[in-house]
C-alpha cells in the first residue's frame, strides 16, 4: 500500500502507468504497471513470484533469468512495459499441476545441481530455453548457454551433468 505513493512523496512527477497484457506461465494476465518497472520488479515485488531472484540488478549474474517468447532474458534489465503481448515463463510455471517436477528441475535435484539454491531458478530457466531450442545440446553448447549464470557453490560440473541428465529424461514435459 505504501509503494504506490512513493513518487508523489518524493515530490517527483508521477510516473506514467500503462496496462499491459501477457501470458504468464499459461495464465492470461492484464496488469497496470508503472513504465519504469523492470520485469523483475513486476514479478517479484508486485506479483509475489519470489522464485525469480535478484543477484546483482545489473544483468551480470543471471539469477533473475526468465523466458520471454522462448528467449532467456535477464528480467532485471527487461522493462515490464516491453512484456506487453509476450509469453513469459518463470520457475513457478515449470512443475506440472499434479506436482511433478519438470525434468530439468528433477535432474538438478538428483544430480547435485543445487546447493544454496539462489542461482537455481535462473540456471534452470536458462537451461530450459536452451533445451527447448536445442534438445541435443552438447557440453560446449550448455556451457555457452549458461555463461551468463553465475554459481558460487557447485563449480558448475553438477549443473552441466543435471542438464545432460534432463536431456535424457526427454527435455520438456509440457
Amino acid at each position: 500500500m505504501y509503494e504506490h505513493n512513493t513518487s508523489e512523496q518524493l515530490g517527483e512527477t508521477l510516473p506514467m502507468t500503462t496496462t499491459i497484457s501477457f501470458s504468464l506461465n499459461g495464465d492470461k494476465i492484464s496488469y497496470e504497471i508503472k513504465d519504469h518497472w523492470t520485469l523483475l520488479h513486476l514479478l517479484r515485488e508486485e506479483m509475489g513470484l519470489i522464485g525469480t531472484k535478484e543477484g546483482c540488478g545489473n544483468g551480470e549474474c543471471g539469477a533473475c533469468t526468465v523466458i520471454v517468447d522462448k528467449l532467456a532474458v535477464n528480467s532485471c534489465l527487461y522493462l515490464a512495459i516491453e512484456a506487453d503481448g509476450t509469453t513469459i515463463e518463470t520457475i513457478e510455471g515449470l512443475a506440472s499441476t499434479d506436482g511433478t517436477l519438470h525434468p530439468l528441475q528433477q535432474s538438478f535435484v538428483d544430480n547435485g545441481g543445487i546447493q544454496c539454491g539462489f542461482c537455481s531458478p535462473g540456471m534452470i530457466m536458462s537451461s530450459k530455453a536452451l533445451l527447448d531450442e536445442n534438445p541435443d545440446a552438447n557440453r560446449e553448447e550448455i556451457q555457452h548457454a549458461l555463461a551468463g549464470n553465475i554459481c558460487r557453490c557447485t563449480g558448475y560440473i553438477p549443473i552441466f551433468e543435471s542438464v545432460e541428465a534432463a536431456k535424457k529424461m526427454g527435455g520438456q514435459n509440457e
Binding site: 513470484l49 525469480t52 520457475i91 512443475a95 547435485g112 543445487i114 531458478p121 534452470i124
Partner: peptide, 11 residues
Amino acid sequence: PKLDAAQKAMG
C-alpha cells in the same frame, strides 16, 4: 539428493 533441493528448484 539434498533434502531441500526440490523446494529450491521450484522457486
